[in-house]
Nucleic acid binder design. Structure first.
Lengths: 334, 334
DNA sequence: CTGAAAGCGCTTACAG
DNA sequence: CTGAAAGCGCTTACAG
């Protein structure tokens, strides 16, 4: 028995036309239930799969989304655990909508990459995760008029879709918890100062301090880049500038863990001497020792919204900006 | 000026046939240098890109590789930093050979996924990274006769390509370092006991102990799953079974960092009281505090070999098994 | 060196 | 409800 490779083969077996097979497989209402079932059974029996490149050519649509992240930068890939966690939920959401997920390979010095993927029909749009170098990665997309959605706070007058966390509220929740447990010298171990999400969290942090009658002390505020490395580097700085600090609100879980590590090395106990709160609730947070109290962004939902709102944009052209809710996950570090 | 979207448009502009345009763009030796340059200049001027789905249909080859990893399991995606680091180098290597990288979405309870990607022509082969559930993920691939390459030690009588690290040597290098610095009660904080790579490392560990005249003590040996979580969970066990341990050789950098964290929490200093060595030299290793001494597997090279050997297999059918060299990166934790 | 033509395997407007 | 035919945009054997 020779393999059934094309709808023509299947049509011959079923003694119908290619059109009918095509319609039966795509569940067209034009085809009678009985015919449809017969053809589908035949297809299943022969392990038949539609040829997808042919389908894409015919439909002039790739049903593929490009994932843009520093993990696939050409020169210096950045391995950020956040990327990987959100990648999983994006993949799930796209899969259930019948879309493939392509890792876009980016040369940050080149502005042609969106065209390379888009004009060539390899991708219908992009999901962009680019924590620290937003402008640089976004510009070529805007220039190429590429359909895309970004994780992060939109810049004013942006015409692209975004999904973001509620940063001001995240900053509030963390700071309120620290204030409520009696901390008075609370440090802000931030991400890049230029980022709107960092500013949002800082605003939440400062408001909460003021409401509690605590001063906002610049010596307690530093900016890093979300990485473990920057947490390890900045914690000693913080301790030097403010030896009496009794809490740290970090911009990411890796930063929080780096901070805990440094604090212990320098003889401070966590949470007794210094309470620490992270951000994102990555899988590592629950397993850290002590288990990390952290602000959860519901990355599962975030991934789904990134996928669904981009697909919706492709269909309708409607630009959406959504904000996923944020909650404090209380564990032992604060 | 209306967009130049197909080689037919370009052919009209250049006053040649579609065949000539196609050949010029694919750099065929049949075309004269002058004609070729003229056509290519025209293509560049109009931002022309070949339609890739059409090309794939015509060539009956997708020029796309599927990346299989627990990061995209349907039910419970696993965010392992190792995955992300190797993904970057795989992406680079595939890109420079003209291949796209698709994230395969896997339902581990379903054996159809390789066919779904392969028979439908979406993918020419797979790169498989599946640390802890090898058999389960490999079986459907073997069954579907899918071309693939795996990161890891091949099981006996396997007919697929592999790239692996030199585990026995990794185990030796780490243990030798610990012995040389005077440690006598060295714990093995392993990965899954059933894995050949873990057995390889353990063999290197035990041999080195014996050569140094030290006993192999079962109380010093435990098995986890490479994750930060399992490091955090098993370090107290180890300490209970062997309170006098003075070194830990961990199966991954996250495990090593979890161990350091626990040790400090329990009042042991690192490296003074207990030396710790990790595995993989992920970016976090250099930034840990103290900076982690670790066994480096050269993931850059590993990624390149995964890509190149798979492509070579697709061309020639030659099954390769290669082993990337391993070296000890000496930092401060041991 | 160049071109006309067939073919890759789908989808769908059109006709019945 | 079903089929014949055109079309999606490439590549390449064949003929010149």
């Amino acid at each position: 028995m020779n393999r059934v490779k094309t709808i023509a083969d299947l049509a011959r077996l079923a003694a119908v036309s290619k059109s009918t097979v095509s319609r039966a497989l795509s569940d067209s209402p034009l085809i009678g239930r009985e015919t449809k079932e017969r053809i589908r059974a035949l297809a299943a029996a022969h392990d038949f799969r539609l040829n997808i490149p042919a389908r894409r050519l015919s439909l002039r649509r790739s049903n593929t989304i490009g994932f843009v992240s520093p993990a696939c930068y050409e020169d210096s890939p950045v391995a950020d655990p956040f990327t990987l966690e959100i990648l999983g939920s994006v993949s799930n959401a796209l899969h259930s909508r019948g879309y493939d997920l392509l890792m876009a390979h980016i040369n940050p010095r080149d502005r042609e990459w969106p065209k390379e993927y888009l004009i060539s029909g390899r991708v219908d749009g992009f999901i962009v995760l680019t924590s620290s170098r937003k402008e640089r990665d976004i510009a070529p997309l805007v220039e190429a008029e590429a359909p895309f959605i970004m994780w992060g706070v939109p810049s004013p007058r942006s015409r692209y879709c975004t999904v973001t966390g509620d940063n001001a509220r995240g900053g509030r929740l963390a700071t309120e918890r620290l204030v409520a447990t009696g901390r008075r010298r609370i440090a802000f171990l931030g991400g890049p100062a230029a980022e709107l999400e960092v500013q949002g969290r800082q605003a939440g942090y400062e408001e909460t301090l003021r409401e509690a009658g605590l001063p906002v002390d610049p010596a307690l505020i530093v900016y890093g880049d979300y990485s473990f490395a920057s947490g390890a580097q900045l914690t000693p700085t913080l301790l030097r500038q403010a030896p009496d600090l009794d809490a740290i609100f970090a911009a990411s879980d890796p930063m929080a863990m780096a901070a805990i590590n440094c604090l212990r090395e320098l003889g401070r106990r966590v949470p007794q001497d210094v309470a620490v709160i992270g951000y994102d609730n990555l899988s590592m947070a629950a397993q850290s020792s002590p288990p990390l109290t952290t602000v959860s962004q519901n990355l599962r939902l975030a991934g789904r919204l990134l996928a669904e709102n981009l697909l919706q944009y492709l269909e309708t052209g409607v630009v959406t900006h959504v904000c996923v809710p944020v909650e404090l996950v209380e564990r032992e570090s604060a």
